[in-house]
Amino acid sequence: MTTRTRTTVSLPADLVAHARAASGGNLSAYVEHALRAQQLRDAAPAVRAWRARAADDTDELATIFGEDVA
């Protein structure tokens, strides 16, 4: 089971009202989903850079295995 930490944040009232309405009664899960989505967006530049560096590796692997590995 994942350890949970209770956190207090201050947000604009209209944003909280929307989140409560959209959350289906589970505001914590709604906020967690939003934060995880942002975490992925934040990681995207690093992932793109890694894929660009790895592109040379896929060419080498394709040569070794004789198939398209990309």
Rank of each mutant, 00 (worst) to 15 (best):
A46R: 14
L15W: 13
A55T: 05
T7F: 00
G24L: 01
G25T: 04
D59T: 13
A22H: 06
F65L: 04
V47F: 11
A55D: 09
L40I: 13
T3N: 14
W50Q: 04
R51N: 12
A43E: 15
A22I: 08
E60D: 07
W50T: 07
A34H: 11
T3S: 15
D56R: 09
D56F: 07
R53N: 10
T63C: 07
E32G: 01
V31Y: 01
L61I: 02
A21D: 08
A44L: 10
L15R: 13
T63K: 00
R48G: 10
L40R: 14
D42E: 15
T3D: 13
L15Y: 10
A13T: 07
D59F: 12
F65V: 08
P45W: 05
A44I: 09
A37G: 11
T63D: 02
V69G: 09
V31W: 06
H33L: 14
A70W: 10
A43W: 13
I64L: 02
A54L: 00
T2L: 14
R6Q: 06
I64M: 07
R41T: 11
R6L: 00
L61R: 00
V16H: 01
P12Q: 11
W50L: 12
I64F: 05
A34Y: 10
A70S: 13
R53Q: 00
Q39F: 15
A49F: 10
A43S: 10
T5A: 12
A29W: 04
S23W: 03
